[in-house]
């Protein structure tokens, strides 16, 4: 019990003294996560929208594959990306293994299906709701799709936040492809794993507290968006 209390105290000391090592790890974690979420959103939101609004051969099969990809085991993704970017792999010549770039690539593979499928569900429900109305007023496809996205903007914010939450807490894939190298590829989750194994519980605990606070913040933000903008009795523009 005393050890836990001491670890907590040490952790808070590290946080409030803005420990340079901690700040560096935090900065890299946010950098990787934000870039991965942005790229995944740029891919996933249009893809989900296209799947929701168009009809073509094998559409249902493609949707099923994307839903299956939502549950991709991170370590398998990590291994897959490792094999591609390792020296003997297809893209080994790029020399990206154990770099933040390859960590971002692994994150994108993990998050894009989540953002795509959640977008698909959101836009499809808007499409089903508005379809006859748009058809009766001869609204063009581009204008209709634009309206789906604008009218679902708050739902899409929660989709992006869900992607962010998934990405920031990811460890399995990025520890394989990033290698957890100090000052280069060490992020919060991989650092927690390493520091715990080393017995340096105060840094691990400090990072754990910050990660927990981020997770709480993301969930509170999602609940706020839902209550503030998606509650029919309390709708702002």
């Amino acid at each position: 019990m005393g050890q836990i209390t001491n670890s907590f105290l040490e952790a808070f000391k590290l946080i409030f003294s803005f420990d340079p090592e901690l700040i560096e790890i935090l900065y890299l974690s946010f950098e990787i996560t934000i870039i991965a979420v942005l790229i995944s959103s740029f891919i996933g939101i249009p893809l989900g929208t296209v799947l929701a609004c168009t009809r073509f051969y094998f559409r249902k099969a493609i949707i099923s594959i994307f839903f299956a990809l939502m549950g991709l085991p991170p370590v398998v993704v990590g291994l897959f990306v490792y094999l591609i970017f390792s020296r003997s792999g297809t893209l080994g010549w790029m020399g990206l293994l154990y770099s933040p770039t390859v960590m971002i690539i692994a994150q994108i593979i993990l998050i894009t299906p989540i953002i795509c499928c959640l977008t698909f569900q959101t836009i499809e429900s808007a499409h089903l709701k508005y379809r006859e109305f748009f058809q009766s007023f001869h609204i063009g496809r581009l204008k209709a799709v634009n309206a789906y996205i604008i009218d679902s903007r708050f739902e899409l914010i929660t989709v992006i936040l869900a992607g962010f939450g998934r990405s920031i807490s990811e460890v399995g894939a990025i520890i394989i492809v990033g290698g957890n190298i100090d000052h280069l590829t060490r992020v919060m989750t991989t650092a927690i794993a390493l520091e715990t194994s080393k017995g340096n519980l105060s840094l691990a605990m400090g990072l754990g507290i910050i990660l927990l606070l981020i997770a709480v913040f993301v969930n509170v933000a999602m609940i706020f968006v839902k209550n503030k903008f998606l509650n029919p009795s309390n709708q702002d523009l």
Binding site: Y130, E132, F133, L237
Partner: peptide, 8 residues
């Protein structure tokens, strides 16, 4: 059922 867009 009136279909109302989320705007003004």
């Amino acid at each position: 059922e009136p279909i109302i867009l989320r705007r003004s």
